[in-house]
Computed example of a mutant assay.
Amino acid sequence: MYQPLEQFSKYWIFKRNDPKVADEDLQGIRLLDESRASQVWRDYISDEQVHPDHFSDRDWLKKNSAQAPDGKFQWEKAWDRDDASLPDEMRAHFSVWGADTTVFFCCHNELVFEMNWGVFQRTWKAFLFLDNGPVLVGKKKKQAAQFHSNGWANLLFRES
């Protein structure tokens, strides 16, 4: 179900001093094995496409009904600040999530991280070194976000 985080080719993103990921938070970040990652991807992201670059109008995240009102914001501005807190737009969109909500940071069908929302809130800057379209979803939650390499993100609502 999981594989050692150290096996991730870009493990260095979690070992940098800026942004610093605390050891206790590092313990809470799990790298799913390819089989489990593929299952989470199919269940939460897309059962047709394997990478964000290939999303089509048939995928829920591209549908108008999935877009949160005023749900486009610049994550890079908050990322560049010394303050480690989440952007205000994200805090508001995900306000119904508890710190123990299980979340998945989905890069593509074979690369998915699992952690709780509290850990993600403290480590989000490290994850956004992987900014080529990853999608953040919560287990059994409707709220989601997709991050783009141009510094923008979309706040979304998953279909039931």
Rank of each mutant, 00 (worst) to 15 (best):
E6L: 08
F8W: 11
S9Y: 14
W12L: 06
W12C: 07
I13S: 01
N17A: 10
D18H: 06
K20W: 04
V21Q: 02
A22I: 10
D23R: 08
D23E: 11
E24W: 12
E24L: 09
L26D: 01
L26R: 13
L26W: 04
Q27K: 13
G28W: 03
I29A: 03
R30T: 11
D33H: 13
D33R: 09
E34F: 08
E34M: 10
S35W: 11
S35G: 15
R36P: 01
R36C: 05
A37Y: 01
Q39K: 08
V40F: 06
W41R: 09
W41M: 10
D43Q: 15
Y44L: 11
Y44K: 12
D47R: 12
D47P: 01
E48G: 04
Q49A: 04
Q49G: 03
Q49W: 06
Q49E: 14
V50G: 07
V50C: 08
H51D: 12
D53I: 00
H54N: 10
H54S: 11
F55C: 08
F55L: 13
S56D: 15
S56Q: 15
R58M: 10
R58N: 12
W60A: 14
W60S: 11
W60E: 15
W60K: 08
L61N: 10
L61K: 01
K62D: 12
K63S: 13
K63M: 14
S65H: 11
A66M: 09
A66Q: 11
Q67R: 15
A68N: 05
A68I: 02
P69C: 02
D70S: 08
G71Y: 05
K72Q: 07
Q74D: 02
W75Q: 00
E76P: 00
K77A: 03
W79M: 05
W79V: 03
D80C: 10
R81T: 05
D82K: 14
S85N: 07
L86Y: 01
P87K: 03
D88H: 01
M90E: 02
M90W: 06
R91F: 00
A92Y: 09
F94I: 12
F94W: 13
F94H: 07
W97N: 06
W97I: 03
G98S: 14
G98K: 14
G98F: 08
A99N: 15
T101F: 04
T102I: 14
V103Y: 05
F104Y: 15
F104N: 01
F104W: 09
C106V: 05
H108Q: 13
N109E: 12
N109A: 10
N109D: 10
L111A: 06
L111T: 13
E114G: 04
M115V: 06
N116Q: 15
W117S: 05
W117K: 10
G118D: 14
F120D: 00
F120T: 05
F120C: 05
Q121I: 03
T123Y: 02
T123E: 02
W124R: 00
K125Y: 03
A126W: 00
L128W: 00
L128M: 11
F129R: 06
L130V: 08
D131I: 01
N132Q: 12
N132D: 10
P134C: 11
V135T: 13
G138A: 14
G138P: 03
G138I: 08
K140V: 14
K141T: 07
K142E: 10
K142Q: 15
Q143P: 01
Q143S: 11
A144D: 07
A144V: 07
A144C: 12
A145I: 02
